[in-house]
């Protein structure tokens, strides 16, 4: 009960902070942790991403939705350095990230997961988790041979990893190969592993893809839990129920642009969004039902 109440407080605070934000695409947030300007990415003649302004409110859960091919994942790749834009710049906690290589974003506190789960199948679950920890002394080759140098740190990392596994109800799988996990469990593992980097912003690319309904509920809880612990969450998702359930703010992309922003309730009523998802005529008829 106690946990429920604190969790509620954080959620209320996050929603209140966004209450007075204007519902227009590319609107400024009171406390932006991630700000992007004029991001443009072209593949040949196709403009995959063309975002004028984009902000993520600190301490909130922001959903990035849009039909297939809207450029959500490309935008994710750009923000995390996995792809380079033709134009544009972005800052994370006020620091310019435009020239930061993908492997360095984690050190800034920005971590991502992938649409196609990337669990390292031939490593055990606990080894997957340990890998996530940053600044490991034993990851320097000259220290590798001398276990005395890294043993202490390794024990701390293992302890933290075990705590996270317990939180994600995966401690019974600790010593299994990650390849032995089910699709949903891999999603959980990937999320837990990302948390090993102690991030401030967690970026989840379709966390619900291929996850069964029972596990979806607990994934939802975990995502709320991240915000509860003070992290900011930005996620791409197709599952509209989940978006409605979890997010504090929704940003809608279509054809590479941001076409709408607002609370989940606003977005559900937004005609531009329904057009983008379903095409014009069906959109209108749906609106009439509302």
């Amino acid at each position: 009960m106690d946990v429920e109440r604190t969790y509620g407080e954080v959620a209320t605070r996050a929603r209140q902070s966004l209450r007075d934000v204007e519902r227009v695409p590319g609107v400024c947030k009171p406390n932006s942790i991630l700000t992007a300007n004029n991001i443009r990415r072209e593949f040949g003649g196709i403009i995959a991403v063309d975002v004028d302004h984009f902000e993520v409110q600190e301490g909130s859960i922001t959903a990035l939705i849009g039909p297939n091919g809207a450029g959500k994942t490309t935008f994710f790749n750009l923000l995390t350095g996995f792809d380079q834009p033709n134009l544009g710049s972005w800052t994370f906690q006020g620091k310019d990230m435009s020239k930061v290589a993908s492997h360095r974003t984690a050190a800034f506190g920005m971590v991502r997961t992938f649409q196609l789960t990337k669990s390292l199948t031939k490593l055990s679950v606990i080894e997957n988790m340990r890998l996530g920890a940053t600044d490991q002394k034993g990851e320097k080759w000259w220290n590798g041979l001398f276990s005395a140098v890294w043993k202490g740190q390794e024990a701390e990392i293992t302890e933290r990893a075990d705590e996270l596994l317990t939180r994600f109800q995966m401690s019974h799988m600790r010593d299994e190969y990650a390849g032995a996990l089910s699709g949903g469990q891999r999603k959980l593992l990937e999320m837990a592993r990302a948390l090993m980097t102690n991030p401030t912003l967690v970026m989840l690319d379709e966390p619900m893809a291929g996850v069964n309904p029972a596990l979806k509920q607990s994934l939802n809880e975990h995502i709320r839990g991240l915000r509860d612990q003070g992290m900011t969450v930005l996620f791409v998702e197709h599952d509209m129920d989940m978006v409605h359930d979890v997010s504090d703010w929704v940003i809608v992309m279509a054809e590479g642009r941001i076409i709408a922003e607002g609370t989940p309730d606003d977005i559900a009523k937004n005609s531009a969004v329904i057009d983008a998802y379903l095409g014009n005529r069906q959109g209108q008829s749906l609106l009439e039902e509302e």
């Binding site: 996995f82 971590v111 990337k118 031939k122 080894e127 340990r130 890998l131 590798g144 390794e154």
Partner: peptide
């Protein structure tokens, strides 16, 4: 060692290790 762990992880998936 943790160094070897990173190598094995790279063998499995480079992008995950980068992230």
């Amino acid at each position: 060692s943790p160094w070897g762990r990173v190598l094995k992880a790279i063998r499995e998936d480079e992008d995950a290790v980068k992230s």
